[in-house]
Design a protein around this nucleic acid. Structure first.
Lengths: 327, 327
DNA sequence: TACGAAAGTGGAATCGATTCCATATCGAAT
DNA sequence: ATTCGATATGGAATCGATTCCACTTTCGTA
């Protein structure tokens, strides 16, 4: 590796001069600039980020913590994040928790020791310990997907969107709607969406049956089994709302294997739009949270913080409903 | 930020002693260890990666260069990569080229200036300039998806798998198979797969018609238009092989919009298995390159190199065919 | 002609770690 | 009693940059 000292020596200047030239601050004569540029080109010199960031406390790296990259939702968010980071000359250090909550905290620490300039967390919970760790952090942390106390965050309109979808299903004529949710340690997906489901049924004076609800853990498999549980009851629902697309895939698989027709025998709706779901039968009716835009939005908020903006902001992301023929 | 100097001062030892304790090399008395541990716990001290890597020339970070993260193929590979990296306490710096070739070279440089310990490149071409840049790199670079001269790489069995799929289609009774490919600057996907298609037709004494071939650029849209081009000819094929799943989605969209039935009017086969494609009609017949395993495999090769193994290895990844009802 | 500001440059300290080397203590073996 | 190896510790150099400061030269203007 060639270093700034090599460049200085070869160009017959001091390393202060090289640095001044590279950073375009201070005075450097035309001739010196040319000699330096020439040597840099010849050697292919690249400044060491480690050394630079030791001095400047800036790495140009943003840490991203997410549950699992190979889901359509997450990878779209990452696309959005990456877009804004690239515009601002930041790189992305990516970590996956695989839904182990303790890893979120561990990664916040780890990323800081890696001297990232900021952290974007795709949130799955708002546990006390996590909130605390975020407060303690000495770099800005922004959160997407949960309303995190005391932290700049963007959350999805979980309640509103779910309520609207359930209403829509009722308008379509469904009267016995079942629900596949997730555990309640996820406030956004676990609590808000379920509450919206329950409240909307009530509002329309529809009865609520405990056996119409089953839970999964975000995986396809768990969606399959939740659907199975629901359909194994003595009476069967005429529709199902699944809180995540991944679980909806599992639910559909169960329905298909057991020869239920969608939407004649049972209607299905979910959140999250898949690349494929538009093109293949049945076209899923879903709530599209426009994850890519959410990714760019949360990253812009982080950029604001990196540029010195201090106040915490809370935003709600927008969404749209995509109508397919699964209802 | 607390530094090693703070720890040393608070624990009443020199910073050499703290370092020795942290790295478990050299002698440190029991009492000193305890005092140091206590102070570290109290302060929440984390060593600065920048400083460490400036001294040790190791960052514990691996750079990953890929075309686009929000594709099923890429995100599955990343999953595999991440798994092995995590096992080995490495983090991942992720970059996207969005299929701009010059960015591959730019990122190789950039990642080096960020002092990554190694680079994993999901290859899209084997251009001279790229090969050169890889040779020049002073960290190990491994490549997935292309057979890169002089570099450790794993490539997919593009020729064999494609030939086998075309044969399978012929066995199924299709006699007029069309082909949606990509530009030939991608040796693996652009050249090998097309050659396999042509050779297999010839081998079965089937005629080849130039108008049965169209090209896309990996995007859904381009698959749509390629399919459109093919179906707008005076005679129509009875099947199509699409070289990537993303383009296959576009092709299917075209077929669906124009009321062709799959597989009655036209059969379709592709590579790459989507989470969804198994569950929704029609179930796609595809070549599954098992991207996640490919990701773990290439990462293990990189780990070997990081541990001092010098020789370059060339491996071919395995695959399997998944039969659906799209043929 | 003189003087102060602008232009140009290098020296040295610094960031936060690691690591080599010198030094000191102590117990065991000769 | 002396010596030697093991244990324990701190000092100082170093990694590759940035940045402050001091110093010199140049130049326009009073």
């Amino acid at each position: 590796m060639t270093t700034i000292n090599d460049i200085a020596r070869l160009a017959n200047v001091s390393r202060s001069t090289v640095s001044r030239h590279l950073n375009k601050n201070g005075y450097v004569s035309q001739e010196a600039q040319e000699r330096i540029d020439k040597v840099i080109k010849e050697t292919g010199y690249l400044p060491s980020q480690s050394a630079q960031s030791l001095r400047t406390k800036k790495t140009g790296v943003v840490g991203v913590i997410l549950p699992k990259i190979s889901t359509e939702t997450a990878s779209r968010v990452v696309d959005g994040i990456n877009q804004v980071l690239q515009e601002n000359d930041y790189q992305m250090l990516l970590t996956q928790t695989l839904l182990q909550k303790e890893k979120e905290i561990a990664f916040i620490k780890l990323l800081q020791s890696r001297n990232v300039d900021g952290i974007i967390l795709l949130g799955t919970n708002t546990d006390e310990a996590l909130v605390e760790e975020i407060q303690k952090a000495d770099v800005p942390v922004v959160v997407l997907g949960q309303e995190m106390p005391g932290t700049t965050s963007i959350h999805y309109p979980d309640y509103k969107a779910t309520a609207e979808m359930i209403s829509y299903m009722i308008d379509k004529g469904y009267r016995d709607i079942s629900f596949i949710g997730v555990a309640e340690d996820d406030p956004a997906v676990g609590i808000m969406r379920k509450e919206a489901y329950l409240a909307t049924l009530k509002q329309h004076n529809l009865p609520f049956l405990a056996e119409r609800i089953a839970y999964g853990d975000f995986s396809i498999d768990s969606g399959y089994h939740a659907m199975e549980t629901i359909m194994n009851q003595t009476t069967k629902p005429d529709a199902v709302f699944v809180v995540t697309d991944n679980m909806a895939v599992g639910a559909m698989q169960y329905l298909k294997e057991n020869h239920y027709h969608i939407p004649e025998d049972i209607g299905i709706a979910t959140t999250g739009v898949s690349r494929l779901s538009k093109y293949i039968e049945p076209v899923l009716t879903t709530i599209d949270f426009r994850n890519e835009e959410a990714g760019t939005a949360i990253t812009r908020l982080l950029m604001e913080q990196l540029n010195g903006y201090k106040k915490t902001k809370k935003l709600t992301h927008t969404y749209r409903r995509l109508s397919g023929n699964s209802l």
